[in-house]
Simulated scan of single mutants.
Amino acid sequence: MINSGATMRHHKKPIISPLRYPGGKAALYTKLRAIVRANDLTSGTYVEPYAGGAGAALGLLVTGQVRRIVINDLDPAIYALWKAVVSEPLAISRMIEKVELTVPEWSHQKDIYLNAPRDDYLSLGFATLFLNRTNRSGVLNGGPIGGMDQTGNYKIDARFNRKTLVERLRLIALHAKRISVANTDGMTIIKRYSKRDNTLIYADPPYFEKAGSLYLNSFTETHHSALAACLNAVSDTKWLLTYDNVPRVAELYSDRRREIFALNYSAHRVTKANEIMVFSDSLTIA
């Protein structure tokens, strides 16, 4: 059931997402593109129930690999960012161009992130983007690059390239009518889209190890088990799942095909870790 010698070639991939995410799956663009083509889904819908940075989804959409994407995230701050990017790209672009990249401004945006009304998508969304681009490793609950005293080797503006961010938002805006944004539980999205024709679901949930430091919405054992039950129940539809390569994954998905692959992580320091991809029964593996 498991291929432990798989090699995944990562050719040049489009970088469209404005967000930095530890272990972001934009690196899987080539693999996902091949799967989309092998399953004749180029005119279909691609769904990410745990979208985070949505790097793969946006890459597939902008390069014409799929017709429509669904970006879902339970975190209200991440949802607000995507809601603002899709519905008010010009407004958030102006904020990117004008914001000061200073520690006082960081403190201000941190306060907005913690206290803004959840339905103030523009303010909350921009604060989320600001912290993601100015915090160490992009972790939202971390501290600013360079420290509060800005004595580090890199300063707070090191990952905030205004021109690049505005250009990415411009590209996303060109395809905004084909992007659906949702703020609900990932399993709800899986159940909603799994039975729809011409649809591919890619689930990338919070992982078993170090989940608390990388994700604001961490999973418990109950969550992992419930997700497995949800996906295994629709094994006759087209989905794939990625996890950290721990024994529990093989137990939860013992009847599904699995493949080990290597992926670089950027949180705290660059490392390469083995992860595992799980496939539904009806999916053609490219």
Rank of each mutant, 00 (worst) to 15 (best):
P117W: 01
D119F: 04
S123D: 15
G125F: 05
F126K: 05
F126W: 06
L129H: 09
R133L: 04
N135A: 06
N135M: 11
G142S: 15
M148K: 14
M148P: 00
T151S: 12
Y154C: 06
R159N: 14
F160Q: 00
F160M: 03
K163D: 14
T164N: 13
T164I: 10
T164E: 15
V166S: 04
R170T: 10
L171A: 06
H175W: 00
A176N: 07
K177L: 01
R178Q: 05
S180F: 02
G186H: 12
M187S: 11
M187Q: 14
K191H: 12
K191Q: 14
K195G: 14
L200C: 12
I201W: 09
Y202N: 06
Y202A: 04
Y202L: 15
A203I: 08
P205H: 09
P206A: 13
P206V: 09
E209N: 11
E209S: 13
K210H: 15
K210I: 12
L216C: 06
E221T: 06
T222Y: 06
H223S: 14
H224N: 12
H224T: 12
S225P: 01
S225R: 09
S225M: 08
S225V: 09
A226W: 01
L227N: 08
A228G: 09
A228P: 08
A233C: 08
V234Q: 13
S235V: 13
D236L: 09
